[in-house]
C-alpha cells in the first residue's frame, strides 16, 4: 500500500545515490567509491540489518549492568550511600524533586528501553511484513536517531557531580561502574540506529522483492 505510487525510487530507475554527499550515479557503481566524496556506494546496505542486530545486542548487554550497579557514590559527614539509576531517581522523589526524578527516569530508563524496542521493530519490519505504514516507520526512525544521543545526559550529570562535589569531609560524590556501562550502552545503541538503512523501509512499498537482489524491470509476455 503506497500513498505516493507515482514517486519512483532511484533504484527502480537504475540509479543510486551516495549516502554521504548525495551524488547520483548509475546503479553499476554499486560497491565502488563515490567519485565526489570517496564514500562507498550502496543502493541498499544489505548487511545493514545484521549490523543493527550486532550493535543492538551489545547495547542491551551493556544496559543490564548499567542498571544493577551503582551509578553514584555519595559520602557526607553522616552517611555514605551508593545508588543505582533507579534508586537515585526514587531518592529524588523522596526529597520532593519529582520533575527532576521524572527527567532522570525518562532519560535513563524510558528512552533506552523504548529505543531498544523501536530499533528491534524497525529491523524486523524490513524483513517481514509490517503493519505500520512506511511514513510512521520513517518518523519512528528519525525520532530514534534524534533522541538517542540525549540518553548521554545521565553520564554527563555524573561527570559534573563528581567533579563539583568534592568538599573534603562535608560531601563527596564519585562515579560508580554503571557510568561506564551506561555510556557504552548509549553509544552501542546509537551505532545500531545509524547502521539501519532507512531506504529499506520504503522498499516494501514499491518492490516486495529481496532488497539484496537488483530490481529487474517488469517482464512482458
Amino acid at each position: 500500500m503506497s500513498d505516493h505510487p507515482h514517486i519512483p525510487s532511484a533504484r527502480s530507475r537504475g540509479m543510486l545515490a551516495c549516502t554521504r554527499c548525495g551524488a547520483v550515479w548509475s546503479i553499476e557503481a554499486e560497491g565502488e567509491k563515490c567519485g565526489r566524496c570517496g564514500h562507498t556506494l550502496h543502493s541498499r546496505d544489505t548487511k545493514s540489518v545484521q549490523k543493527v542486530w550486532a550493535w543492538w545486542f551489545a547495547g542491551v548487554m551493556a544496559y543490564i549492568p548499567a542498571n544493577l550497579e551503582p551509578m553514584l557514590k555519595t559520602r557526607t559527614l553522616v552517611m555514605e550511600s551508593e545508588a543505582t539509576i533507579v534508586e537515585g531517581a526514587f531518592e529524588l522523589i523522596h526529597h520532593g524533586d519529582i520533575p527532576v526524578a521524572l527527567i532522570i527516569l525518562i532519560a535513563s530508563v524510558g528512552i533506552p528501553v523504548a529505543k531498544f524496542a523501536a530499533i528491534a521493530y524497525l529491523a524486523f519490519s524490513v524483513t517481514r511484513q509490517a503493519k505500520m505504514s512506511s511514513h510512521r516507520r520513517q518518523h519512528l526512525y528519525e525520532l530514534v536517531e534524534y533522541i538517542g544521543r540525549w540518553s548521554m545526559i545521565d553520564v554527563f550529570v555524573v561527570a559534573i557531580l563528581s567533579a563539583l562535589v568534592q568538599l573534603n569531609a562535608a560531601a563527596q560524590i564519585s562515579p560508580g561502574p554503571a557510568a561506564l556501562t551506561f555510556a557504552l550502552s548509549v553509544i552501542f545503541t546509537m551505532l545500531s540506529a545509524q547502521s539501519f538503512d532507512s531506504r529499506m523501509i520504503w522498499d516494501t512499498d514499491t518492490a516486495p522483492t529481496d532488497p539484496s537482489k537488483k530490481e529487474a524491470p517488469l517482464e512482458r509476455h
Binding site: 505516493h4 514517486i7 519512483p8 525510487s9 532511484a10 533504484r11 527502480s12 530507475r13 540509479m15 543510486l16 545515490a17 549516502t19 548525495g22 551524488a23 547520483v24 550515479w25 548509475s26 553499476e28 557503481a29 565502488e32 567519485g35 565526489r36 543502493s43 512506511s134 520513517q138 528519525e142 532507512s198 531506504r199 523501509i201 520504503w202 522498499d203
Partner: peptide, 19 residues
C-alpha cells in the same frame, strides 16, 4: 571513475525517492 555522475537528479537520502 568509470561511471559518470547522473546530473539533473536528486535522490532523497532517507527513502531513495528520485526527483
Amino acid at each position: 571513475m568509470p561511471h559518470s555522475q547522473q546530473s539533473g537528479y536528486i535522490v532523497c537520502p532517507h527513502c531513495d525517492a528520485l526527483y
